[in-house]
Design a protein around this nucleic acid. Sequence first.
RNA 1: GGGGCCGUGGGGUAGCUUGGCCAUCCUCACUGGUUUGGGGCCAGUUGACCCCGGUUCGAAUCCGGGCGGCCCCA
Length: 481
Amino acid sequence: MGKNKSGIEFDKTEQTNEWYTDVINKANLIEYTDVSGCYILKPRAWYIWEQIQAYMDKKIKKKGVKNAAFPLFIPEHLLTKEKEHVEGFAPEVAWVTHGGNSKLAERLAIRPTSETVMYAAYSKWVRSHNDLPLKLNQWCNVVRWEFKHPQPFLRTREFYWQEGHTVFATKEEAVLETKDILIDVYKKMYEEVLAIPVLFGFKSEKEKFAGAVHTMSVEPFLPIGKAIQGGTTHYLGQNFAKAFNIQFTDTDQKKKFVHQNSWGLSTRSIGAMVMMHSDSHGLVLPPKVAEHKVIIVPIIRKDNKEKVLKFAENIKKELATFNPFLDDRENYSVGWKFNEAELYGYPIRIEIGEQEVDAKKVTVVRRDILQKENIPAKNLKEKVSKMLETMHKDMYNKAKKFLDDSIVVEEKDVKKIAKYVKEGKIVKTIFDREKDTDEIIKAQTGGKTIIIPFDEVPKKGAKCPFTGNEAKAVVYIAKSL
RNA sequence: GGGGCCGUGGGGUAGCUUGGCCAUCCUCACUGGUUUGGGGCCAGUUGACCCCGGUUCGAAUCCGGGCGGCCCCA
């Protein structure tokens, strides 16, 4: 008998941060490097990212967005062109100052985001209304030299993302797109790929992107009682158009500044996924991002090895569409394999021993609920397919229930709001939507404004509980990662 | 932004207070054998003091700096 060690050594609710670190390490997602905040995304992690990429890439291409690649380096004179933008990013820009031993005439920023390099080019490319809309995206890495404690996926100095940068003739088209990308791409990606429900809406004035007119965000709510910005779209207005002189001649023969958007979603989403679904046994992968949706563990003895393996091989063939991993390694015990499968998060485990072979059955275990079920092997492909679908739905619904149960409504009593925030709730309330009010909210409740939902307004005459001013918007407040 | 803990084979650790022998133990990995219904067993092998500087006859241990990791609070 083994030592009956549980795979994960920390409690998810009591020691969430240790638990998180333990899960991603034991699931073989991450390797540390000598540079703080920069991690190796091992194949298991990168595969997840590839699934997120594949889903979004297809969607945005359908919307007429084309992929391109812009340089990693941004010369200082470009980075500093838009005033609010540079003020927002300056504190965490990493600079290249030397080439070999010689000092550069102008230092180069390593892109923290690519508005400024891209728009320098856009100003050359946009001449007439016929050039619009211009819709480009790039899949790349960016660097933001954060000084807070780094955490794999969730807060890293280098991260991978996509950044879409689109240019329109009119405000209406641009604003429409920020909402479309937010809901049709980002929100759906979270729901359909990662099985995570999100809050979505506008960011407050305080929390919006540096240089944007408005920012919209999707926000998963993690089991630690904190919201996390999971993907953002920005309507940049004409701020960058003016700074970079991006003008077009319209049908009325007048020169006009363009309206622009940028939008991004990063590898942070993987961190949200781990936090959301995983448990004390290890990683729980939503089926859509699992490379091997099925692991088959044969349980063999010397005298039945051939018989059991043959049966297992047949099952593997039948389930080929799920890319099953037949774990026929002989130097590991069955218990070891079970535990490892749980750490790695294979969505479905099929156990096959002599009992199963003789009865023409298989033992099936869903990773999210870990209940064993002994079912006939007949039509297994359909059964597995359904099981994966159900698993995704169940994972989503569980997360959705948690989200719904976490929301409390309190529009008057600031002390109560503070208490709820402290308890890890999301408080749905109202405020005057002034920029300075965010500070007051932070000071009085310990929470941040997470999102301002679309299409909801306070009752007439309602007062902002934080300032006493007229309430102008509904807002969700919570702790934030 | 503030505070605390820590860095020794791949992972986890003992040793550090009071400097000195071949650096402890567990685990993983590797080889061979045996085994397989929840991290099996036996034997063997490889493998480590974060970096730089200082003190000293002698540093994992003391001092200074750096780099890195973790936690808590705002």
